[in-house]
Nucleic acid binder design. Structure first.
Lengths: 87, 87
DNA sequence: CTGCATTTGTGCGTATGTATG
DNA sequence: ACATACATACGCACAAATGCA
């Protein structure tokens, strides 16, 4: 389903829209635990956004406990089954 | 914890409060001439303010002749001993 | 070991929109 | 109208670490 384009007019920030896609891929198993999610550059190319925005999306995912970033290697899906979230 | 927190209720703008700290560090030699002052990101993290506010603080410091900014490098302490201020 | 591509880290420049006092 | 402040978003440049041929 490619009905998913970034909507710059939406009230939902672009970085949240991108994060939502990654989350969906995680939830649907497209991105299993330990799998590397698309790099910032990938997001820039795929969605035509600024790197800043891609970084924001990744930061958000990290914030939500979905992934963890390894410097210079990438950002990987975390195992949330036994997550210890504080919300 | 820090005795020096930003006071959002103060009549003194947040950016001026932050600038005042940097100035104090300069005056006290904590930040010697040519030393890079905390980046905008640092200020954002340390004081929990928006980048816009951090930028305002730096702009103010520049305005007062305390520092000079080198694009993509950082903002550095100026030698004011022989300052040529226009005031 | 060397060179190169990839990827994240860092830092500033700029602009827009929103909200408050 | 204006200053202050926050959030978002695009752009540019360079550094540093990693991985692999």
């Amino acid at each position: 389903m490619a009905e998913s384009e970034i909507d710059h007019e939406s009230a939902t920030p672009v970085y949240r829209q991108i994060a939502a896609r990654v989350i969906a891929d995680i939830e649907h198993g497209v991105l299993p635990v330990d799998r590397r999610i698309p790099s910032e550059s990938d997001m820039v190319k795929r969605y035509g956004v600024a790197r800043d925005t891609a970084r924001n999306a990744v930061a958000y995912l990290r914030d939500q406990g979905y992934v963890h970033t390894v410097p210079h290697r990438g950002t990987f899906v975390l195992d949330r089954s036994k997550a210890t979230e504080a919300e």
